[in-house]
Design a protein around this nucleic acid. Structure first.
Length: 611
DNA sequence: ATAGGGTTAG
């Protein structure tokens, strides 16, 4: 169908209906031809037909450009139904910018949105957290003389609650006459979202009629505040338990790390389970670092014929990122493509993060550039990823590009940017961005940012400056910050500050095993064996447990874990040979193992091999 | 109106 033959007027209607029903993507030329057809024959331009045409165009092309052009060129006055359906369609597909375009077009024609649309628009304003838009919209409605009934007032309550203006929300709610269950539930969920459990409970207790939504709101409210036992009480008391109730309480247990309780309910649910239930459980496993169980749950989900969703994929990708399982990650990516899942910002970000953490910055960038919509999470992941892989300058450039897109950097952006500068030795850039944080962007540096600066200066050998940062920063240094300085001391073989760090370890009862080890090794390299023993005694006294070094590799979609000094694997001897090869290669590249600061009580040859 | 997903310093 490269060109559409000009049909006879009597056939046009059928013909157009046929063309539109084939569900093919129409190109611009074809559309213009249909457009011409519709305009030249006034009889054909019936509102239903035009509506079908525009909606099918918008559904397939997902851009409001042509439909807007089309509508603007229609002879006046326009039929309000046409504009209303386009506004509604863009709202339903959550394309806010398209919505604004259509809504403005509607107003340009002095038309009013119909009533169901009005509440939809309020919901959209809530979704966008567009305070000004919602306000101006409310004023417009008043001017238009649209009556505020319970439905509209409820929409308004929802709007105020979502943008965080609880006082206005409560005011509208109090002034409402004839509140129904929905109105009460909207107010209830407003309280719930802001963790206002007392207010929520008071309203809940005063309600004469309660449906499952009311009970579920209370369950989620208690879960959100970590009061899992109160949530469970609500769940048990509810006479109208539905899937949502079960899912809410299971999620509550997962968030508390109580997988046993979550699983018990999960099993007890039987066949009521839906995809959200499975996603909740899988996400729970991932959050508790039970990646293998997450994967098994995914397989079981498929075995029970429950369709995995985009949310399932996000959890699986997160598991891959933690495991460094690139093969499995690529498999998930292929699965996403084969199922035609919609790669939105969240899923896109999960892919970017997975590829970064699995070592493939190129694949991460591919995904990033392929996204039509990028938000702060996506940019942050890319900036963090580039910095992590030693591309500090690229991270800085990404930061600049992000600003050009008019996105405001947040505190995570600066963590990524500063650590990127640190890994690439970009001292002056790091200093500049650190000072710009508060002066230009109005973000107060947190302990992470001071930590980055200590690391940046420490790596560059500016140890005194690094210590000055620790001394002058507005918060107490934690083990990460001291760890950065400690490692810098080791790398630069500078022991000036070693006493201060030891003092810190004595003062702050930290259980951070790594710092004790580094400190002990530092003393060992100085042959200060008394201090080494002191460190070791400290570790024992404080009950700090040294987790054995552990790494994992992935072969044929199976993740193999290796624990340091554990020869129980049958392949162990082969790995030994392989490890020898790597050592030789490293030496060829001029790498020297840092023997001095390690395990003083074993002989030189063995020492080298272990390091 | 109610349930599930993403980025953070050594």
């Amino acid at each position: 169908m490269n060109s559409i033959p000009r049909p006879l007027p009597s056939l046009a209607s059928d013909y157009l209906t046929f063309v539109l029903s084939t569900n093919n993507l129409l190109n611009l030329r074809q559309l213009q031809q249909i457009h011409a057809q519709l305009l030249t024959n006034g009889r054909l331009s019936s509102t239903p037909l035009l509506t079908t045409f525009l909606t099918s165009y918008y559904r397939t092309h997902k851009t409001n450009h042509y439909p807007l052009l089309f509508l603007r060129n229609l002879p006046k006055p326009n039929n309000p139904f046409l504009w209303n359906s386009m506004v509604q369609l863009s709202l339903e597909s959550e394309n806010w910018l398209d919505f604004l375009g259509f809504y403005n077009g509607l107003r340009e024609n002095y038309l009013f949105p119909n009533k169901s649309l009005v509440s939809l628009i309020f919901r959209a304003c809530s979704g966008l957290c567009a305070t000004h838009l919602g306000e101006s919209f409310r004023c417009q409605l008043l001017k238009m003389g649209i009556l505020f009934d319970v439905v509209l007032q409820t929409g308004l309550v929802d709007f105020y609650a979502k943008v965080g203006d609880m006082r206005s929300a409560e005011k509208v709610f109090e002034e409402m006459t004839g509140r129904d269950v929905v109105a009460n539930n909207v107010m209830l969920s407003g309280f719930t979202k802001h963790g206002l459990v007392k207010e929520a409970r008071r309203l809940f207790d005063s309600m004469q009629e309660r449906d499952s939504c009311s009970w579920n709101s209370m369950i989620t409210c208690y879960c959100k505040l970590g009061q899992i036992d109160s949530a469970r009480l609500m769940f048990d008391r509810s006479p109208v338990k539905d899937v949502v109730s079960w899912n809410a309480i299971i999620d509550g247990y997962c968030k508390m790390g109580q997988l046993m309780n979550a699983e018990e309910l999960f099993v007890r649910m039987g066949s009521v389970k839906n995809s959200v239930t499975w996603n909740t459980m899988i996400a729970g496993y991932v959050q508790s670092r039970e990646f293998g169980r997450a994967m098994r749950a995914f397989l079981q989900m498929q075995a029970e014929n429950v369709k995995p969703t985009e949310v399932t994929m996000v959890s699986l990708l997160s598991a891959c990122a933690h495991l460094g399982a690139i093969d499995m990650g690529e498999w998930v990516h292929a699965y996403i493509r084969s199922k035609d899942f919609k790669v939105d910002v969240v899923l896109g970000n999960a892919l970017i993060d997975m590829y970064c953490k699995c070592g493939s910055i190129e694949a991460a960038l591919d995904v990033f550039h392929g996204l039509t919509v990028k938000n702060i999470f996506c940019w942050n992941s890319v900036i963090v990823g580039l910095g992590m892989h030693g591309y500090g300058e690229a991270a800085v450039n990404a930061f600049i590009a992000m600003e050009k897109e008019n996105l405001k950097p947040d505190e995570v952006t600066f963590v990524g940017l500063l650590s990127g500068c640190s890994h690439s030795g970009l001292v002056s850039a790091g200093r500049r961005y650190f000072s710009h944080m508060s002066s230009v962007y109005g973000i107060q540096p947190g302990i992470e940012h001071y930590g980055c600066m200590v690391d940046l200066l420490g790596r560059a050998g500016l140890l005194q400056e690094a210590l000055d940062v620790i001394k002058t920063m507005p918060m107490k240094a934690n083990s990460v910050v001291w760890g950065a300085l400690l490692r810098a001391c080791r790398v630069h073989k500078d022991t000036k500050f070693i006493e201060q760090v030891t003092q810190y370890l004595l003062e702050l009862e930290t259980n951070d095993e790594g710092n004790y080890v580094v400190l002990s090794n530092l003393y060992a390299s100085l042959n200060r064996w008394d201090d080494v023993n002191f460190c070791r005694k400290l570790v024992t006294e404080r009950g700090v447990r040294k987790t054995p070094g552990c790494s994992s590799i992935e072969v044929d979609n199976l993740v193999h874990e290796f624990v340091a000094g554990d020869p129980s694997r049958p392949e162990f001897s082969q790995f030994d040979v392989f490890s020898d090869e790597i050592q030789e290669k490293l030496k060829g590249h001029g790498h020297e193992p840092d023997k001095a600061s390690f395990l003083h009580d074993i002989d030189e040859v063995e020492k080298e091999s272990i390091i």
